[in-house]
Amino acid sequence: MLEGKFETASTMKKVIEAIKDSVKLCNLNCSQNDGITVQAIDDSRVLLIALKLDPSCFQEFRCDKDLVLGLDLESLSKILRQGNPEDYLTLIAEDSPDSLLIVFEDSKKDRISEFSLKLMDIDSDVLTIDEMEHDCAITLPAAAFAKVARDMKTLSESLQILVTKDSVKFKADGSIGTGSVILRARTNLDDTKESILIDLNKPVNLTFGAKYLNDIVKATPLADTVTIKLTDKAPAMFEYKLQGGFLRYYLAPKFED
């Protein structure tokens, strides 16, 4: 039996909103040691999503037997919208479940809402995701990255990211004209989450699909900062850290064969 109780529904609500536009169907893997993990590739097979919610993400967590819960994320999202962000949220499944029980409780305990979501059999490869060497790692405010990704998409389908030791430059070249935004590395000791940190082994110049970057920044409400790891001719990693877990996106850059 699985029983995972979140102190607030907001984490799960934000996580599902962050991935449901990239992936329609996915398996939730549940185990006592790892908590809940998800690995899914978007339909165009260019973006890989990896979610980890450790048992420490939950107020209470038990999972007697490893479970795979196949879910339609649009349906899950409909149910999660029924609860308030500050409600307790509990996910419950039997050992051989055909449905997932989702329970919201008002913090004053005077309202309990229960929903049952039908599960599906979803065929998906489980991929090995190793830690990768990277040419550079950038940590910046998640909102600043989201603004650049959204603004630049209006100019071009592609966004070029150029990193040097003291700045990150985003460049868009479209039919109406061009644009660029430079963010300089800075350390803000008063407010560390406002810092822009660049750890550079090698300068980087990579181009990504603006559509995918806009899918990735849907995770912005989950974390104050995003860490981006870039390597020439390798998938980039965008990481949003959660309390006791993470949501990572791996995006293949665009390049000529």
Binding site: V46, L127, Y250, F255
Partner: peptide
């Protein structure tokens, strides 16, 4: 596409 090949080359099925 090149992008799809890149992703599947990096992340092999377990």
């Amino acid at each position: 596409t090149v992008q799809q090949r890149l992703l599947t080359n990096f992340f092999k099925p377990r």
